[in-house]
């Protein structure tokens, strides 16, 4: 994936439906993910974001509808899911074709060089999350699925990891589907922001402001209000 190919999709979902017993979580959901596109996915807790990601990752075969994913996929799960009996570096290199130097670079990028030989059970929550992120990023996939990868990071680390993800995205141009609860984070990072509600994509807006973006960009302010409404929260400042 050297350059962004407009009009080419890495993932195409039509009429995707997923039910757990009686409970329908995704209902006839449609979604196209363009190659190199950075998408943020918002939605209330329990709206089915992780369920959608699992389907895209090919981890859930019990779904109905059409689902086509072309190219390689890498996932950073909502919980870090490091393999506890492999040291941090071993987790990064697991199933990796690239030389070990690439894994070391990825660890350096997320600031974990020091913890390379640590056992996962000894990592802090944020360290484990960064290791999990490095494990996904190092694979340079065509589609990168990130399920709330920044939730356990402090505000400062979060900013630098945002930077890191944007840099990697600019370098390799994978399509990114980033699940987040943070509307501002979505607006700062993504080309396109989706809201998942009632089992389908209830809101889909493009963000065209050039990066690096600032929170008080007028486009972002307007979009933020729209998104908060779509999420069922009254936008701040409304009288």
């Amino acid at each position: 994936m050297a350059a962004r190919l407009p009009g080419v999709t890495v993932a195409s979902v039509r009429g995707l439906t997923k039910a757990f017993g009686e409970r329908v979580v995704l209902e006839s959901l449609d979604l196209e993910i363009g190659s190199g596109e950075f998408i943020a996915l918002l939605g209330r807790s329990g709206s089915g974001k992780s369920t959608l990601l699992r389907a895209l990752a090919g981890l859930d075969r019990e779904v109905s509808g059409e689902l086509a994913v072309t190219g390689s996929v890498a996932v950073a799960f909502q919980e870090p899911r490091l393999v506890p009996w492999k040291r941090v570096l071993g987790n990064i290199t697991l199933g990796l074709d690239a030389p070990v130097e690439r894994a070391r670079e990825a660890l350096a990028e997320v600031g974990l060089t020091e913890r390379e030989q640590a056992w996962p059970l000894t990592l802090s929550g944020g360290e484990a999350q960064r290791a999990s992120l490095a494990r996904a990023l190092v694979r340079e996939p065509d589609l990168l699925l990130l399920d709330e990868p920044f939730s356990a990071l402090d505000a400062l680390t979060r900013i630098s990891v945002h930077q890191l993800v944007l840099e990697l995205w600019a370098r390799h141009r994978p399509a990114v589907l980033l699940v987040t609860h943070d509307v501002d984070e979505a607006l700062l990072l993504a080309d396109r922001v989706l809201v998942l509600d009632e089992g389908r994509i209830a809101h889909d807006s493009a963000v065209t402001a050039p990066r690096p973006r600032h929170r008080d960009n007028p486009e972002l302010i307007t979009l933020r209000a729209d998104l908060l409404t779509a999420l069922g929260v009254s936008p701040e400042g409304r009288s």
Binding site: A57, G58, L59, S72, V73, A74, V75, F77, E79, R81, V83, W85, K86, L94, G95, L96, R135, R139
Partner: peptide
């Protein structure tokens, strides 16, 4: 959940057994 990780890391069946199941 670790078996799912192995799947997303493209581990084959032999590698799954060696790196996840046996340990």
């Amino acid at each position: 959940k670790l078996a799912e990780v192995a799947h997303t890391l493209k581990l084959g069946r032999a590698a799954l057994i060696r790196h996840i199941v046996l340990p």
